[in-house]
Amino acid sequence: MEPGFNYRHLHYFWVVAQEGGVSRAAARLGVAVQTVSAQLQALERDLGVALLRPAGRGLVLTEAGEAARTLADRIFALGAALPEQVRVAAGSRAVRLAVGVSDGLAKLVVQRLLAPVLAEPGLRLLCSEGPQDRLLAELAQHRLDLVLADRPAPPNPNLRLYGHALGRSAVAWYGPPALAEAARSGFPQSLGTLPVLLPSAHSALRPALEQWFERHGLHPQVAGEFDDGALMKAFGATGLGLFPGPVVVEPAMLARYAVQRVGDCDGVEEQFWAIGTERKVQHPLVRRLLDAAPGG
């Protein structure tokens, strides 16, 4: 029996529900506002109920719209999984895992977090790095299976995202041998007279570092700010400045960048999160990552 609606109409409604307005949905879909409005009207006509109602300058879901949106989430999640499932059914050994990596998260930490799945036979790992807000938009469109970040997803009534804590790490200060030796004398006050490198204001770690400086009465000489933690460490290794790093990956960091530990950044921790679109995770590799986390 043919369904009583058009799946294209449903997709347009689903995007409008996520974006909270026809104009934003049209911009995301790359079509005219009139096209989106026509698709919505056609879907409501086919279903015989109103799915959206005006609220201020935007739209909100009716009770029927909430039910339709919940089902649409499942439908398009299944649609995104269809290619992989078909390949598996056809005997392909390829297992795809698309991961978004927030640019504020240390890359050595990312390697550690993904370690439980890296030995999967036929794994095809797709990593995309960028600002968390862009990655979350791609996650909501089911272009990614999960996002690894240094903070949970911010509240958004138009996006149903779920954060899963993967762990945390103490933070310490590091630098190349000569700079580290100079910094150990009178640490932590020495950080007020030596150059330091910091993550940019977009990082979840930055406010905690600024509070740490304030607690110790320090006014650091900031020689550089970086969105990318790996880039910050690379420049720190050249002697540009001392930099903070997660203790959990210290052995790998010391070996890769030939730096030394100066001292603890007491009271400062870095957190690691996996963000997904499902409360009950279905992707087997994502489930394995969560189970491997402390308390998973």
Rank of each mutant, 00 (worst) to 15 (best):
E2S: 08
N6W: 05
R8V: 08
H9A: 10
H9R: 08
Y12G: 10
Y12I: 07
F13R: 13
V16C: 15
A27Y: 14
G30L: 11
A32L: 12
V33W: 11
T35F: 09
D46P: 05
L47H: 02
G48C: 04
G48T: 01
G48L: 02
V49K: 08
V49E: 14
R57Q: 14
V60C: 09
T62L: 07
E63N: 10
G65D: 10
G65L: 09
A67G: 14
L71N: 10
D73A: 11
R74V: 12
L78V: 08
L82F: 09
E84S: 14
E84G: 15
Q85I: 08
V88S: 15
A90P: 04
G91I: 00
S92A: 15
S92H: 05
R93S: 04
R93G: 02
V95S: 13
R96C: 12
S102W: 13
D103V: 13
G104Y: 12
L105D: 07
V110F: 11
L113Y: 06
L114H: 08
A115Y: 13
A115L: 13
G122I: 02
L123K: 07
R124H: 10
C127P: 04
C127M: 11
P131T: 10
Q132D: 15
H142A: 13
L144F: 04
D145K: 05
A149M: 09
A149I: 05
A149E: 07
P152N: 06
A153H: 04
G163S: 09
A170R: 04
A178Q: 03
A182D: 01
A182R: 04
R184A: 03
T193R: 11
P195Q: 00
H202P: 05
S203Y: 00
A208H: 00
H216M: 05
L218V: 01
H219Y: 07
Q221K: 13
L231W: 09
K233L: 15
F235E: 14
G236F: 03
A237T: 00
T238P: 05
L242T: 01
G245M: 01
E250A: 06
E250K: 00
R256N: 11
Y257A: 12
A258D: 13
A258N: 08
V262M: 05
Q271F: 11
F272C: 06
T277I: 09
P284D: 08
P284M: 07
L289G: 06
L290I: 15
D291Y: 10
G296N: 10
